[in-house]
């Protein structure tokens, strides 16, 4: 993993996501795709086995620092997601877009629920609000998953700059 290039990617993504990402949002609530999670899934799917979980953690930390979530909640969620994906990717065959879409969908749901769990434990989220929150989480996951093949394509165009493997082993 080329950490300087990765750092630039994180900063640019944060600026896009928090700066003018709402302009690209869908619906009356301007639901945005989660670009940080998108990169985390692609890097966990394609990156170095030892460095990918750390990269995912850093992406989660970036999301923690630019959102109102409890500090550490997204970092833990992204880190666990990255670790799980790195270990289970050996069981998955191929590089198809459908596989990546499914992985992104599941990862997004998992990470958001981990964050909600921490918020509930801290008393910042009540179970009565779960129905409304689930709607937003599902829409975000679907939108992010739909963009994941394009995200992988974009990142793999610069696989040398990021130190990623050109093909999955």
């Amino acid at each position: 993993m080329r950490w300087i290039s990765f750092g630039i990617l994180v900063v640019v993504t944060v600026i896009v996501q928090s700066g003018f990402g709402r302009l690209l949002g869908l619906g009356p609530q301007r639901i945005m795709p989660d670009l940080l999670l998108l990169w985390a899934v692609v890097i966990a799917f394609r990156g170095n086995k030892e460095q990918a979980p750390l990269a995912c953690w850093l992406l989660g930390l970036a999301k923690d620092l630019t959102s109102s979530a409890i500090l550490g909640s997204y970092a833990v969620g992204f880190g666990l997601m990255g670790l799980a994906l790195v270990y289970f990717r050996e069981l998955l065959y191929g590089e198809s877009a459908l596989l990546l879409i499914l992985l992104t969908l599941v990862s997004s749901l998992l990470v958001e629920h981990i964050t909600l769990l921490f918020a509930t434990l801290r008393g910042e989220f009540s179970r009565q609000e779960y129905g409304g929150a689930l709607k937003v989480i599902l829409l975000t996951a679907i939108l992010t998953a739909a963009l994941s093949p394009y995200g992988q394509w974009l990142l793999m165009k610069m696989y040398r700059q990021f130190g990623l493997a050109r093909r999955r082993h």
């Binding site: 979980p53 750390l54 620092l65 409890i70 500090l71 550490g72 909640s73 833990v76 921490f118």
Partner: peptide, 23 residues
């Protein structure tokens, strides 16, 4: 990776007044 995950778990217990300053 293990160290940073431990740091994240510890950060979950920090008060909002402190973490908001970082934000």
């Amino acid at each position: 990776y293990a160290y940073v995950m431990c740091f994240s778990v510890l950060a979950l217990f920090l008060p909002r007044s402190l973490t908001d300053r970082l934000d």
